[in-house]
């Protein structure tokens, strides 16, 4: 432990192409890229499924299967295939990012779907009755009301991606996972722990930042800020029931909603 502290407080470890700053940036880059692609893919599909009520069984089945899929196995499988198929950077980065995207999709997809499916039917009926088009109902009512669940899905996805991006170092990808993998190979435990601590800090800080973004994106009418905890825990229980356990539970999310 003290070794890790020494490692972290050694200035030389922070600079250069394999320094902490560079690795952190790499890690962030993989994470943000994968998260952005996953949001672009998963949110429209989840919204469409929630809005139309079609293919709901598919969502829970998909989410369940993907949760059970061992990330390490998937990562290595795609990396081997990438190395034999492509040349250059893309051979490693492509498969790794693909795996990250695949892992980030289920929580966003199922939470978007669950959030929209949980919109009060009366509110939806009123929206249509007042003359909103299907698109307007989705954009002005369903998505904003589903936003707490969507944001918690994005946070789950973020944590999943940060963790898996660490593991991706085993297939020679950059990022903070390099310290863990290299440390292990070099039998340098201090380096390993330092890397692990950095990953943990990144996950926690990133999660907090996303929570803060959620604070501004979610209407106070839906959270515990102005209203007693109403949507948060109850919706989660509903979501678990609906998904038969496949909905990713929001971890740190809205922990204080009851207080």
């Amino acid at each position: 432990m003290t070794g890790a502290w020494d490692w972290l407080t050694t200035g030389a470890n922070w600079s250069g192409a394999s320094g902490v700053w560079a690795r952190l940036l790499e890690h962030l880059w993989y994470t943000m890229l994968a998260l952005a692609v996953a949001i672009v893919i998963a949110m429209p599909i989840g919204a469409a499924i929630g809005h139309t009520g079609r293919a709901t069984g598919l969502v829970s089945g998909l989410a369940n299967a993907l949760r059970a899929l061992p990330t390490l196995g998937l990562l290595i499988l795609l990396a081997l295939w990438g190395l034999s198929t492509f040349k250059g950077d893309i051979a490693l980065l492509g498969p790794a990012i693909t795996v990250l995207v695949i892992l980030a999709i289920p929580p966003i997809l199922s939470n978007t779907y669950a959030g929209i499916a949980a919109v009060d039917p009366a509110a939806r009926d009123a929206a249509i009755g007042m003359g909103m088009t299907g698109r307007e109902v989705l954009a002005k009512v369903e998505l904003p009301v589903a936003m707490p669940l969507i944001m918690s899905g994005i946070r789950s996805a973020f944590l999943q991606v940060v963790a898996t991006a660490t593991i991706a170092a085993v297939v020679s990808l950059g990022g903070l996972g390099r310290y863990v993998i290299d440390g292990y190979n070099q039998q340098d435990y201090s380096k390993m722990v330092a890397g692990a601590l950095l990953v943990a800090v990144l996950a926690i800080v990133g999660d907090r930042i996303l929570a803060l973004i959620g604070y501004f994106m979610i209407s106070p009418g839906l959270t515990g800020r102005k209203v007693r905890a109403r949507a948060t825990t109850a919706d989660m229980v509903v979501a678990i029931r609906q998904e038969g356990g496949s909905t990713v539970l929001e971890p740190a999310n809205q922990a204080g909603a009851r207080s």
């Binding site: 009418g221 839906l222 949507a231």
Partner: peptide, 17 residues
């Protein structure tokens, strides 16, 4: 529909507004 008022049982207010 925009030209016809519509009121339903549970009001159906938009919780986020």
């Amino acid at each position: 529909r925009r030209g016809i008022g519509y009121v339903i049982q549970n009001a159906g207010l938009f919780p986020h507004r």
